[in-house]
């Protein structure tokens, strides 16, 4: 270990490994927990750790969005899904041994390939003197609404359309057809 570590870096390092360990353990719980509600809680933990990582990477704004949308929105949605489709206490049958083995093999193969791939690759790192924009939130906002070169206004609008379509689609799919008939009869 480098002795000339300054305190800020040390905190940074400790935070990274702590969060990493937590998120990996929580992620393992997500994929293996027998009780689906427990998995949902673990997912929330993973996502919160993710927000922590973003803060470590100096993207506070994205971390905020992550907490708001992911933890506050999607996880809650998933909990609803759990409750609508099975009881919170229901215990999931463990997957068959063959499937487990196949899944393990596939995921490890992916891990190995990916690790080998990026250990073999030389990434063009930005110079040490490069500075992050001062206010990430402001920069993101400007970029999203920029309709010039390198601007994201079109994908931004497309995303808004996608969200609208998915909301309507979800309503259509999930609506109970029987109840609709009753409604039209009265």
């Amino acid at each position: 270990m480098d002795i000339t570590l300054n305190p800020a870096d040390l905190t940074h390092t400790i935070a990274f490994y702590t969060l990493a360990l937590t998120s990996i353990v929580a992620a393992l719980i997500v994929v293996t927990a027998k009780r689906i509600f427990r998995a949902a809680v673990a997912l929330a933990v993973v996502l919160i750790c993710g927000a922590g990582f973003y803060i470590l990477l100096n993207y506070d704004f994205i971390a905020g969005v992550q907490l708001l949308v992911y933890v506050g929105g999607i996880v809650i949605l998933i909990v609803f899904a759990v409750m609508l489709t099975s009881s919170l206490e229901s215990i999931e049958e463990p997957p068959s041994l063959g499937r487990k083995a196949l899944g393990l093999f596939s995921s490890l193969a992916f891990l190995a390939t990916a690790v080998i791939a990026f250990s073999e690759t030389k990434f063009p790192l930005s110079s040490i003197s490069a500075e992050q924009p001062k206010d990430v939130a402001k920069a993101v906002g400007r970029k999203l609404l920029d309709y010039g070169a390198g601007g994201y206004v079109l994908p931004f609008e497309v995303i808004s359309l996608l969200l609208l379509a998915s909301v309507i689609g979800a309503i259509v799919v999930a609506r109970n057809p029987k109840r609709k008939n009753e409604g039209s009869a009265t």
Partner: peptide
Amino acid sequence: TWMVNGVIAVA
């Protein structure tokens, strides 16, 4: 599973 392993194989 086939798809994932296929992607890995292609990679």
